[in-house]
Amino acid sequence: RERTTFTRSQLEELEALFAKTQYPDVYAREEVALKINLPESRVQVWFKNRRAKCRQ
């Protein structure tokens, strides 16, 4: 699998949801995934990595 490159608009959507909740449920992830045209699994991994970045 190729590394996913997020567009600015995708990142804005993801960061907006992250500001609301660092642990979105599957419904919130699927909703944003549809909105930004990415698989839910990519959204899930983005949140995992974003939380790790936050802890550093």
Rank of each mutant, 00 (worst) to 15 (best):
R1C: 11
R1I: 15
R1P: 10
E2T: 07
E2R: 04
E2A: 05
E2M: 13
E2C: 02
E2S: 05
E2L: 05
R3W: 06
R3A: 13
R3Q: 09
R3N: 15
R3Y: 07
R3I: 15
R3V: 11
R3C: 05
T4D: 11
T4F: 09
T4M: 13
T4H: 14
T4E: 14
T5M: 10
T5G: 10
T5L: 05
T5F: 09
T5I: 11
F6C: 07
F6K: 04
F6V: 09
T7E: 12
T7Q: 05
T7H: 06
T7M: 03
T7R: 04
T7W: 02
R8K: 15
R8M: 13
R8P: 12
R8Q: 11
R8C: 13
R8W: 09
S9T: 14
S9N: 08
S9H: 13
Q10Y: 02
Q10W: 02
Q10E: 10
Q10T: 04
Q10I: 03
E12K: 11
E12L: 09
E12W: 07
E12I: 11
E12P: 02
E13L: 07
L14S: 01
L14W: 00
L14V: 01
L14P: 01
E15C: 03
E15F: 02
E15R: 02
E15M: 03
E15P: 00
A16D: 05
A16E: 08
A16G: 13
A16T: 13
A16K: 07
L17T: 06
L17I: 06
L17C: 06
L17H: 02
L17A: 05
L17E: 04
A19Y: 06
A19L: 11
A19G: 09
A19N: 11
K20C: 11
K20A: 09
K20I: 10
K20N: 04
K20D: 03
K20E: 08
T21D: 08
T21H: 05
T21Y: 04
T21L: 03
T21G: 09
Q22N: 11
Q22F: 04
Q22K: 07
Q22Y: 04
Q22G: 04
Y23T: 07
Y23H: 14
Y23W: 14
Y23V: 07
Y23E: 11
P24L: 02
D25G: 09
D25H: 04
D25S: 12
D25E: 07
D25Y: 00
D25Q: 02
V26Y: 15
V26W: 14
V26E: 12
Y27A: 15
Y27Q: 08
Y27V: 14
Y27G: 13
Y27K: 15
Y27I: 14
Y27E: 12
A28M: 10
A28P: 00
A28R: 09
A28Y: 04
A28G: 04
R29S: 09
R29N: 02
R29Q: 05
R29G: 01
R29K: 05
E31I: 07
E31N: 10
E31H: 11
E31L: 11
V32H: 01
V32M: 13
V32F: 05
V32L: 12
V32P: 00
V32C: 11
V32T: 14
A33D: 00
A33R: 03
A33E: 00
A33V: 00
L34N: 09
L34V: 13
L34H: 12
L34A: 15
K35S: 05
K35R: 10
K35Q: 04
I36Q: 03
I36M: 09
I36D: 01
I36F: 08
N37H: 11
N37L: 06
N37T: 03
N37Y: 03
N37K: 12
N37I: 15
N37A: 11
N37F: 03
N37C: 13
L38R: 03
L38T: 09
L38C: 14
L38E: 14
L38G: 03
L38N: 03
P39Y: 01
P39C: 08
P39G: 04
P39A: 08
P39W: 01
E40H: 06
E40M: 13
E40A: 13
E40T: 09
E40K: 07
S41Q: 12
S41L: 07
S41G: 09
S41H: 10
S41M: 12
S41N: 06
S41T: 12
S41V: 09
R42G: 09
R42N: 09
R42S: 14
R42Y: 06
R42H: 15
R42M: 15
R42W: 11
R42P: 01
R42D: 15
R42Q: 15
V43R: 00
V43S: 01
V43T: 03
V43G: 00
V43I: 14
Q44K: 11
Q44D: 09
Q44C: 14
Q44P: 01
Q44M: 08
Q44R: 11
V45F: 02
W46R: 01
W46E: 00
F47Y: 03
F47E: 00
F47W: 02
F47A: 00
F47C: 04
F47K: 02
F47R: 00
F47I: 05
F47H: 00
K48V: 08
N49Q: 10
N49H: 10
N49A: 09
N49L: 08
R50S: 06
R50I: 02
R50W: 03
R50G: 01
R51E: 02
R51S: 04
R51F: 01
R51H: 03
R51Y: 02
R51G: 02
R51C: 03
A52C: 09
A52T: 12
K53I: 14
K53Q: 08
C54F: 12
C54A: 13
C54R: 09
C54D: 15
R55Q: 07
R55A: 08
R55W: 04
Q56H: 12
Q56W: 02
Q56C: 04
Q56P: 14
